[in-house]
Design a binder for these strands. Structure first.
Lengths: 323, 323
DNA sequence: TGATTCCGGTCAGTTTCTGACCTGATGGTG
DNA sequence: CACCATCAGGTCAGAAACTGACCGGAATCA
């Protein structure tokens, strides 16, 4: 317990919880003489962590920003905050940032004590108010376990509720070689090689439960299409787009793009109108999107709930405007 | 470089980047014999980190979830993702979670190399699509520096753009004893004792720039009001509420509360209507809020921009609905 | 059963670590 | 300016630890 190695860790953690530490106090905490404290500090510096020191009347040590990231020592609350924040980021973001969030999330979740995992999950479900989240949220744990098995090239078992069978509860056990996670329209999909069907499949993560890495390693296969993202996109059935709203917006494509491009797919139609496709968990968000687009539009394709809500909002806003 | 202490850190980091590690491979990486690897593992276990091992054909070591959080070893990308995600969480959340996010953010930012800080800041500004964010976003760095000085009871200097003087550019240097950060209506305020004016003041964080901890410690004073939050609330001038929209909504308070309570202040008026006050950076968000409230409403108080947009949306939605 | 892996004891030589002591350098204060 | 508090780092000798080699044991899987 009182080795050098534990001291290095404790020192690092002390330096992270307070900005300034007078040498004497640090030496005291670590129960060593000041001389060996200086040596410990030196050791940290040799490892590449920049410990700045100021001399003089009230000098002290402080951990600075350097070239390498030191290991972060976090409290429980902070770890929970991280899990929540990264879980949301992985959901809402896309591209490289979402992936980085995901791998960071994996690391946090992996070492998070079980009771904290539950607390984090509970908190996240309360906190999310993201536009365009996936309908049933994917839990941080599912997300991170799947990500881990991909990273480690480890086979994966899980239960999957097939498209039609949600009501009937026909969920099946699957056994796959997980290949990659991709986001399409704010939903997470897993591209994987299904070992029973002997073929490539894609799975929606919100339909996937009880994932568990078997300990078996596998060697990565070539995915038949160009990349995993396009493979998943190809396989998307019409059903999955059920909530999609498509409309013709009377404004130039790039203008609309700049306003709501983050949330919608936009294709130009002529020079001053464009077609906008939006895919939201709840119709309010789509409505909001078209509101923000700031131009007249015609609905081409939408679920009935959307049309109803459109009438409702128009009516209520109208009356509020004149009232 | 080849110390025991550095090995402990490296081992921990290896265990976090891959789920399973055969002992031989770990020993190889660390350039030690397998015997000393076992000893290192033992050491980690003695420090409280649960390293699980499985024996047999393809056994290996794996870092489990235990009672204590081990130091997180993260890559640069992951650190950036953390900074971005935690920055957003600190902004959007409130209460204990926002505070935990903030203190976690401080730790990440403190050790984040300068160039990564810039990247994180840039990414965050692109990524946010938070309803009801503060008008000019508060940078993660400002937020975390201020939080750090509070934590460490360290005096703080910064420049502050006073209410009227934004255009004239009359920003003044301030020197304060920072006391607490509070969120009011999705904005961050700093409650602090102003050393020049010799009195308590509250500052909006988005008007504050170039914060810098002087190295001087101070002893906490008693804040005159009950707590910092109420102090800040008292001091809010009317100007700060400029963008506020107030309306009478014809639905029971608790129903409205359940729909948009997160974003608005709601006070019951009789049994089946209530007054809703919303404070958003852009009128679109307020509109959206009232849309989501799902009931008829009368605007009582609003900036002209809001009224205009209300007419515009009503009009466009109307035409889309009949079209 | 055999192969593979983790587990942990023992031993001796080596390395490192520690505290004590001392001299310098630096920065703030009265 | 002198004075004090702090970090910096050299040296030394004894104590402590670390290391690799070698071993027999136990668990797990095919």
């Amino acid at each position: 317990m009182a080795n050098t190695s534990s001291r290095a860790l404790r020192l690092l953690s002390l330096l992270q919880t307070h900005r300034f530490w007078p040498g004497g106090e640090l030496a005291d905490r670590l129960e060593v003489s000041e001389r060996t404290l200086r040596r410990d500090i030196d050791r940290l510096r040799e490892l590449g962590y920049p410990v700045n020191a100021t001399r003089g009347a009230d000098g002290g040590y402080q951990l600075g920003a350097g070239a390498a990231m030191p290991p972060l020592t976090v409290e429980e609350d902070e770890a929970i905050a991280m899990a929540v924040a990264l879980g949301n980021a992985a959901h809402q973001g896309s591209g490289a940032l979402a992936e980085a969030s995901l791998s960071a999330l994996s690391k946090v979740v992996q070492v998070l004590p079980a009771k904290l995992k539950r607390r984090a999950e509970a908190l996240r479900s309360v906190t999310v108010d993201s536009p365009f989240g996936t309908a049933p949220e994917v839990s941080a744990e599912v997300l991170s376990i799947v990500a881990q098995t991909i990273r480690d090239e480890e086979r994966l078992r899980f239960r999957y509720t097939a498209k039609g069978g949600a009501a009937a509860g026909e969920d099946l056990g699957r056994h796959v070689e997980p290949h990659q996670l991709v986001t399409v329209g704010r939903r997470w999909y897993l591209a994987a090689y299904d070992l029973e069907r002997q073929d490539w499949r894609s799975f929606r993560l919100d339909r996937l439960s009880a994932p568990m890495g078997t300990r078996a390693r596998f060697r990565r296969r070539e995915i038949p299409t160009d990349d995993a993202a396009s493979f998943v996109r190809q396989g998307l059935s019409q059903r999955d787009r059920g909530q999609q709203v498509v409309a013709l917006v009377h404004a130039p494509a790039d203008e609309v793009e700049s306003r709501i491009g983050r949330w919608a797919e936009i294709t130009p139609v002529g020079t001053d109108s464009c077609r906008v496709a939006m895919d939201a968990s709840q119709p309010q968000w789509s409505l909001f999107g078209f509101g923000w687009a700031g131009a007249a539009f015609e609905v081409e394709e939408a679920p009935e709930a959307f049309r109803e809500m459109l009438r409702d909002w128009a009516d209520r806003f109208e009356r509020a405007a004149v009232g």
